[in-house]
Amino acid sequence: MIDSHCHFDFAPFCDDPKAYLELAHKAGVGKLVIPAVGERNWRLVRQLAEQFDSLHYALGLHPFFSAEHSRQAMNALKAELEAESLLREKNASRCVAVGECGLDFAITDVNRNQQISLLTQQLELANEHNLPIILHCRKAFPELVRVLKHNPPVAGGVYHAFSGSLPQAKQIIDLGIKIGVGGTITYRRANKTRNTIAALPLTALMLETDAPDMPVSGFQGEPNRPDRLVDIMHELATIRAESKQEIEQVVTLTTAELFRISL
């Protein structure tokens, strides 16, 4: 399986990445995608992927940290993605997407225009380099859809940690975006999300932990881990009509195809 969204450069993983990767591999999670949050961790996610073959990464500017992004941040991102593009021509890049980016209107003193501008420019960069996009959205769904319609992602993408309604999910899928399924579905009280995920086409789904965030049920208060992707997979199988084997095969293939990761 592939964990399509894991902040593996964060604590506690950064203390002993090899040990946490071994836990993931033993559980059946063979590959991880690490989304960046800003200039401060671009180098670190790249170094981790250079150190471990099972890691890939995305480069972007996360809206939650928009106050940290300098005026030069977008120019820096352009330069980074251009360098990755040259490496990709030599099959030497592990950068598989642009992100984590999006809109987060839930934060205090949010600068909506800045976030919309940063997202728009990152969508343009993703299209320029034919890379998928990793999207984050809180309290900004209509605005996100509006931006996506003006800048359709040519290489697709994934809406990370989806917890919306079925009509919202269909809007996203119609824009060529996959739905990231995380720990939310392991909570029986999350009926809206569970019912939505159960009703969507299997080919529209991808699995993620968002570790060390979004703990699965039974592990509240603990840092989430990539090996717990198996718990999300198990719960997905309980709410879907397909067999667990079919779900695992289809979702893994979908993730590999979006990010162009060899299985």
Rank of each mutant, 00 (worst) to 15 (best):
C6N: 06
P12G: 09
A19D: 10
A24K: 01
K26V: 08
A27L: 07
V29Y: 03
G30A: 14
L32A: 12
I34W: 02
A36F: 10
V37Y: 03
G38N: 03
G38I: 00
Q47L: 14
L48V: 00
E50R: 14
E50Q: 15
Y57A: 05
A58N: 02
L61Q: 04
P63M: 05
S66A: 13
S70E: 15
S70K: 15
L77G: 06
L77N: 08
K78N: 12
E80L: 09
A83F: 09
L86E: 14
K90R: 15
K90G: 03
L103T: 02
I116W: 00
L119W: 01
N127A: 11
E128L: 15
H129R: 10
H129F: 15
L135H: 02
L135G: 05
L135S: 04
R138S: 06
A140C: 10
V145S: 13
V145H: 05
V145G: 13
V147S: 03
A155E: 02
A161T: 01
L166P: 04
P167C: 12
Q168V: 03
K170G: 01
V181Y: 03
G182V: 04
G183H: 03
Y187W: 08
R189Y: 08
R194F: 06
R194E: 08
T196S: 08
L202E: 07
P215H: 04
V216S: 02
N224G: 12
R228S: 05
V230C: 12
H234I: 00
A237S: 14
A241P: 01
K244F: 15
K244P: 00
E246N: 14
Q249P: 14
V250P: 00
V251I: 15
T252H: 11
L253T: 13
F259G: 13
